[in-house]
Design a protein around this nucleic acid. Structure first.
Lengths: 188, 188
DNA sequence: ATGTTTGTACAGTATAAACTGTACGTAAAA
DNA sequence: TTTTACGTACAGTTTATACTGTACAAACAT
């Protein structure tokens, strides 16, 4: 016996609503990865879509311009959250959500955070060097200046040590050693 | 013999420049904590200022409005990056940068990330429940729908497990156990 | 080759966020 | 109590960012 159209339709709505709820919360909370709700929504949509999507399909699904889809998907690729999928015979570009959230988390640190660490470290070293040079080469310093420089150098050394520690932490993400310390349990 | 005014002044400029470089890089990279460059600059200024500052001093230092200083400093307090300092006899509110960057890092996760985890988890559980109910109670499901629901539930279980893992990781930040795994070395 | 289709650069527009100035409630000082 | 000073709510302005539509280059099809 064929199922009633209404029941099928209604069940479909329930499924849809369950998906949409999660997609929407993800989208609202992806600012932690530095992306807008729109981009988060796109990721969520791709995550639940079992087939890779074309830009036109995304445009259709989110009711947005194709240009936006293009730039958004690029942002998601930069974050290693989405990958291009090649299917022979299909002309349009296809994109799929990467589904390994642990890896996404790790990649965010090994990419975004590591970049910042590198930039900040460079500035810190440069300033540290200038201050140390000033302290050792220059004798035209007031006592107050000398004390000031000492304090600043101490602060810079502290932040430098912090970044070294952060690098170590991130490397345990990168090589997955963190799982030895915080176990990844079986999903029930 | 008194030091030449020019030399003292010039040295002061070098010190200032060394500070500014670091403050500026910090400000440009604090987006990882979800704050604007302006707010980052304020934190940097407070970090290098050895005395707590009033809103008027901040306004003066950054050449911005007092209102901005007020809201910015509030944001920094929400992030546990700045604290109010009480000095008897001083009428104006005084604020100082918290200097423990490890703690700031940890607090960011125990506050911001944990909040997101909680919200997302709630949505995931809700949707998971709805789908499981649909699967067990409803017999008006097409085979295709049944398969679809199964897939979605699997995905939700996976993300749930991920968030459980993330909570465990964050708790090692909170209780500092992470230092047992990633050692905090002495700054030379 | 010629004609289509696809993705994106670019410029322009809409929307959101940051920032300012005033005005006011609150608390300290007179 | 009156006066003065401080911090922030609020409305308005400016600036930045997200988003759109068009136009074009590159790749594919014919």
């Amino acid at each position: 016996m064929a199922l009633s159209y209404n029941i099928v339709e209604n069940n479909q709505a329930i499924i849809e609503r369950a998906r949409e709820r999660v997609i929407e919360t993800i989208s609202q909370n992806m600012h932690l990865y530095g992306v807008t709700p729109s981009i988060g929504r796109l990721y969520g949509t791709l995550f639940f879509n079992d087939e890779p999507m074309t830009l036109d399909e995304m445009k259709e699904a989110l009711q947005m311009s194709k240009t936006s889809m293009s730039t958004s998907v690029r942002t998601l690729m930069d974050l290693n959250m989405v990958e291009k999928v090649w299917v022979k015979g299909v002309r349009k570009d296809l994109y799929a959500a990467k589904k390994d959230w642990y890896q996404i988390f790790f990649d965010f640190f090994t990419n975004q955070w590591a970049k910042v660490i590198q930039i900040n470290t460079k500035a810190i070293h440069q300033s540290m060097k200038e201050l140390e040079d000033l302290l050792s080469n220059e004798n035209g310093l007031t006592d107050e200046q000398r004390a000031q420089i000492q304090l600043d150098i101490e602060k810079l050394r502290y932040t430098d040590a912090y970044y070294r520690w952060l690098e170590k932490l991130i490397s345990t993400f990168e090589n997955k050693a963190i799982f030895d310390f915080v176990n990844r349990e079986q999903e029930r």
